[in-house]
Structure formats: C-alpha cells, structure tokens
C-alpha cells in the first residue's frame, strides 16, 4: 500500500486527467488550495497511464470521457491502473449520471479506494476534497444521484426498504457520517441511527456480524 492508509488533510500527490483545460485547471486549483501537490495534469488516457507510472501518485483523479475516442477512455484507463495496482486510489469524475459506468468501475475488483462523482459536485469544494480524502483512506464513494439510479435498478432485498431508508443508504454510500446524514435530511441523529438499524436488518446484516456492515450494506447494492 503506497499511501492508502493516510487520512491526511493535505500533502497528497495527485495526478489529474481531464481533457477540458478550464475544468482541469479548476480541479488543480482546488487541490493546491488545500495543500495537495498536483504532480501531473494531463489531457488524455495514454498520458494518464504514463504519468502514474512516472510519478507514483497517492491518488488519481480522472474524467470518464477523453481523447482520442471521446468515449470512455478515462474509465478504461482507471480500470487498467487498478488492475495493475489494486491499492491505487482512483476518483473518477463524470458528466454521466448513468449507472452503467459506475457499476463497471465498482465491479472491476475490490472497490475500496474507488470513487465515482458527478462533476457537479466539484463545485462543493470542501465536500469534494472530503471525498478525495475518503477515497485515499480506502473507502468507496459513489455520487448520490448515481446511487439513486442504482437503487432504482435493483430488485430483491432493497425493495423492502422504505423511501427514507433508501435515501439514508444513498447518503451512506457517499461516505457521509450519521451526523452529516442527519443534517442533510434535517432530522435528528437518533432518527438516522434508527433508519440505519432498520435498513441493516432488512438487508439481513445482523448487528453481531462485524462492524463493517455499514460498508457491506452499501456494497450490497453497488455490486450487481
């Protein structure tokens, strides 16, 4: 593990891949502001793979759609990087809310240290940086909007959840704490805890199993 366990607030070495210059500069600006080092900022998938080999960064931030094909080269590059080094934290930024891409990313192997966020979220600067830190810490982050679609596609145990429980589960998948979820939904911490307990039971994750059931609940539906 290179730096996978570091829960730092700064000093990360980051490689950014994004073909739109203004967005690339914007993301780099945020990271520098928070004291991270952008070791390389590239505009296509090939350069991304080269830059990672050269700089051995702590985390990669990449766009899905990139030259030359303007298809999903960024996502493919992320999968290639993860295949070579499953410990490398990768945060994928996307314009697409479609769950297909997120699922391909998460299904590619162990999902710890992976993130899939809509580019809209980058504007919520502190949340974006929190998400990046969470990915570096080995957690899995998926955009709430994408989770909503993933939930819509799923059938089975998730059908048993109430609308509110799904909402809570969606926020959990984003890596939010109970307190953050309570704030987002404008309810008390106790109410959130109650929802989480109820949804964990409905997902057949009994409390005595282990303390990672929160993660397992999220993975239960992110994985197909």
């Amino acid at each position: 593990m290179s730096n996978g366990g570091v829960m730092s607030n700064g000093g990360l070495r980051v490689v950014i891949a994004e073909d739109g210059v203004i967005v690339r500069e914007g993301v780099a600006g945020i990271l520098r502001h928070f004291g991270h080092e952008v070791v390389a900022a590239v505009g296509n998938a090939e350069e991304l793979i080269e830059a990672v080999a050269e700089h051995q960064p702590d985390v990669v931030v990449t766009d899905v759609r990139m030259p030359p094909g303007l298809s999903d080269e960024g996502l493919q590059a992320a999968l290639t990087l993860r295949a070579a080094n499953p410990q490398l934290p990768v945060l994928v930024l996307s314009q697409y809310v479609e769950q297909t891409y997120a699922r391909e990313l998460l299904d590619s192997g162990p999902s710890s240290g992976l993130g899939y966020l809509l580019k809209d979220r980058v504007g919520e600067v502190t949340e974006f940086v929190d998400a990046l830190n969470a990915v570096v810490a080995g957690r899995t982050i998926v955009d709430a909007e994408v989770v909503r679609q993933l939930l819509a596609r799923r059938q089975g145990p998730l059908d048993r959840l109430s609308a509110r429980e799904r909402e809570v589960l969606g926020l959990m998948a984003e890596g939010r704490s109970n307190a953050a979820i309570a704030r987002e939904l404008v309810v008390t911490d106790a109410a959130v805890a109650k929802h989480i307990n109820s949804l964990l039971t409905k997902l057949d994750l009994p409390p005595d199993a282990d303390d990672h059931r929160r993660v397992r609940a999220v993975l239960a539906y992110l994985r197909g």
Partner: peptide
C-alpha cells in the same frame, strides 16, 4: 451532443468550481 459537452457543460462545471472557491 459533442458541442454541448465540450462547450456549455465544461464552462458550467468550471464556473461552478470558481463559485465554490469564491465561497471558501
């Protein structure tokens, strides 16, 4: 689709980032 993606969408994302930075 390509024009929207490369043009308006990019600029809106960048603008959103600038606004977010300004809030900081």
């Amino acid at each position: 689709e390509r024009d929207l993606h490369d043009g308006a969408q990019q600029r809106m994302v960048a603008m959103n980032i600038q606004l977010g930075m300004a809030r900081l």
